[in-house]
Simulated scan of single mutants.
Amino acid sequence: MSRRSSRPQRPPVSASSCPCGLPAAYDDCCGRLHAGQAAAPSAELLMRSRFSAFVVQDEGYLLRTWHPGTRPRRVEFDTGLRWLGLDILDVTEGSAFHTTGTVTFRARYSHRRSAGELHEHSRFVRHEGAWVYVEALPTPQ
């Protein structure tokens, strides 16, 4: 009789590149943030690490980096969805010198063999010293 884990199986991540699109291995990039070894120093890097968390289905990281005022109880992962890539289109503020920031991005995915894109303008704030995701804003034209 086999034992089944109640924890969802995470999709494999290439050792050669991080899903966030930066030229580093996952373990040296977003993997460090997911493991709690470092915190995202900017809103853009938090956005990238959250995209990677969706790729590897790291619900804990997504919830920890979501503002408590807008955080859902759970993150449901669609088993038919595969995240393919992330393009950062614009960043406003969100550096070490700011308390707020926005990131506009395009995330490409495949859902049950159909290609799609999520285009979002996300708002981030510092909460208790760390960057957190607050909400999606209307996408600028």
Rank of each mutant, 00 (worst) to 15 (best):
S2T: 13
R50I: 05
A43D: 10
Q37V: 01
P12W: 03
H67C: 10
E120A: 03
C20Q: 03
V132K: 12
V132N: 15
T79D: 15
R106T: 06
T92M: 06
G69S: 13
P8G: 02
F124N: 08
C18N: 06
L84D: 12
H67A: 11
F51N: 01
S5P: 01
R126C: 08
G69R: 09
A25F: 08
A25Q: 10
L45K: 08
A15L: 11
S95Q: 05
W83Y: 10
R82L: 14
G116R: 02
T65I: 01
G101Q: 05
R3F: 14
S2E: 15
T102C: 05
E44I: 05
G116M: 10
T104P: 13
Y133R: 05
P68I: 11
P23R: 02
T102H: 03
S95R: 00
L81G: 00
F97M: 04
R4E: 14
T99Y: 05
R32G: 02
R123Q: 08
A15P: 11
L33C: 04
T102S: 06
S114G: 04
P19C: 09
Y133Q: 07
G60H: 04
Y26G: 07
S122D: 04
T99P: 04
S17D: 09
W83C: 09
V103F: 09
L89S: 04
A38D: 14
V13D: 06
Q57S: 09
R74V: 14
H34R: 06
S42M: 00
S122G: 02
S52G: 01
R112V: 03
R73P: 08
R10E: 12
A24V: 02
Y61C: 04
P72K: 00
R126L: 14
R4A: 14
A38Q: 03
S52E: 13
V75Q: 05
S16Q: 10
L22W: 11
S5Y: 00
E117I: 07
H98S: 11
P19G: 07
L22V: 11
S122Q: 05
G36E: 04
R64F: 05
H127C: 04
